[in-house]
């Protein structure tokens, strides 16, 4: 089959036309045109990491090694407070994006700062929960359930931490350069990242905390 096509192209004068056609087809891609899709695909791969951690927790989540289970360890009011912090940070980031669309730099920065504070509150509450568990001797080493719990929730917390670092970096960038196209693009990537973390948290509070209390 390949031999036939070779004789076709070399035998007919259409071969030259094809060369010209290929040259014309080479068009310019504007800078950053594929960034959003690329970042989305990164998020999907991140989604796979969390899926594996959820699967691990699903398998090991009932292996208490004679120690306490979710009912004795988790405090739902604290988790509810944490959930509300993350949800509020999601809507304030949305407002930052709206301010960015309107070209209002000061409003964008203000909403980003509010988002950062909510994110920081989320992290502080999570650290309070983790240190409380560890201080009472229920660290990740004490059972397979706690190992998988700390890995799953800790990985989410680590993502939020890096999201915060990124947020502060972008606030500095916007302060220096303004809402230039590159900064708008970066803010949109962080928007996807931040809202994505909130989607993962829905899975965490449902499958880890709420389902844990039902066991």
């Amino acid at each position: 089959m390949s031999a036939a096509t070779v004789t076709d192209t070399t035998g007919s004068p259409a071969g030259e036309d094809r060369d010209i056609f290929l040259l014309i087809d080479e068009h310019d891609h504007p800078e950053g045109a594929s960034t959003m899709l690329g970042f989305w695909i990164y998020l999907m791969s991140d989604c796979l990491i969390f899926a594996m951690l959820f699967a691990t927790y699903g398998v090991l989540g009932t292996s208490y090694a004679g120690g306490p289970g979710p009912k004795q360890l988790f405090e739902l009011p604290l988790v509810a407070l944490n959930t509300s912090m993350l949800l509020l940070s999601s809507i304030t980031y949305g407002f930052a994006m709206l301010a960015m669309t309107d070209g209002k730099q000061r409003a964008t920065q203000a909403w980003l700062a509010v988002t950062g504070l909510f994110g920081l509150a989320f992290l502080c509450i999570e650290m309070y929960e983790f240190t409380g568990l560890i201080r009472e001797g229920h660290g990740p080493w004490s059972s397979a359930f706690l190992s998988s719990f700390f890995t799953l929730v800790g990985t989410h917390g680590l993502h939020v931490t890096f999201g915060l670092v990124w947020l502060v970096t972008l606030m500095v960038q916007v302060q220096w350069k303004g809402l230039i196209p590159a900064n708008r693009r970066r803010l949109m990537c962080l928007s996807l990242f931040w809202h994505f973390l909130d989607v993962i948290w829905i899975g965490v509070f449902t499958f880890v905390y709420l389902m844990g209390m039902l066991r």
Binding site: G32, A33, G94, F95, M97, L98, P181
Partner: peptide
Amino acid sequence: DTHGAHDEESHGSRKGYLIGF
């Protein structure tokens, strides 16, 4: 920006964010 055509729509609206929230 030169390729802002799809950006406009993908930011969403205030109403959309509030409904979602």
